[in-house]
């Protein structure tokens, strides 16, 4: 297989105004051009990436990163975002992997990325899973519903800041950890007496 730099150059030539960056062993693609880059990878005779093996989301909290600036280590704040990682392989040419990454803008609100399901059926359930557990809405997905959690579930349980509900396992007399956790969320009974309705 070609090197990552060669692939990057060829994608940039084929998909106009695409923004690509190489990070480690993967290519970071901007949201607007993800679908076209995926189409290029699939249809290109040399690469023939006909098989998307793995698709999963990663939740990155805001963090500090050390960056070298003028020979000095400077700590920089990196905003949080959700990231979807795609591992492409080629069944025809038997090579791979080629890893793509695509990132959302921040972690709050309606986060959406383009869906690659119209090109690769294999992404259908995996995108549903990423939506279910991380709350990324895939635009263009034919059937974006929850897949593992039940339909009435409100939150996205794989997010790093997810809080389990206190009544997760109901106990008549909460004690130890359960009591500590309950105290965090609910005011003490003396502070806010509950009036019967």
């Amino acid at each position: 297989m070609e090197t990552l730099n060669q692939i990057k150059d060829r994608i940039e030539a084929a998909v106009p105004s695409v923004r690509l960056a190489i990070e480690g062993r993967s290519l970071v693609v901007d949201r607007e051009h993800l679908l076209e880059v995926a189409r290029f990878l699939k249809n290109d005779a040399e690469l023939a990436m006909d098989y998307v093996s793995n698709l999963c989301a990663v939740d990155w909290l805001p963090r500090k990163v050390k960056v070298k600036e003028g020979g000095q280590d400077v700590e920089k704040d990196l905003p949080g975002f959700l990231e979807v990682v795609y591992d492409f392989y080629s069944m025809a040419k038997k090579h791979g992997p080629l890893q793509l990454r695509c990132r959302t803008d921040g972690r709050e609100g309606m986060l959406s990325l383009p869906s690659i399901t119209p090109l690769f059926r294999g992404a259908e359930f995996q995108e549903r899973e990423a939506f279910d557990l991380y709350g990324i809405r895939f635009k263009g997905h034919p059937d974006l519903r929850r897949i593992l959690m039940w339909d009435g579930f409100k939150d996205f349980p794989m997010r790093k800041d997810y809080q389990q509900p206190d009544d997760h396992e109901w106990e008549p007399t909460p004690h130890d950890e359960v009591l500590q956790q309950a105290k965090k969320h609910w005011p003490a009974p003396s502070a806010a007496p509950v009036k019967p309705a």
Partner: peptide, 20 residues
């Protein structure tokens, strides 16, 4: 073609004639 496109793997894929 559908087997490849739908990321099917293992004996199911090979039963459809894909040598992978």
């Amino acid at each position: 073609e559908l087997a490849i496109n739908a990321s099917v793997t293992g004996p199911m894929l090979r039963a459809s004639g894909v040598d992978y």
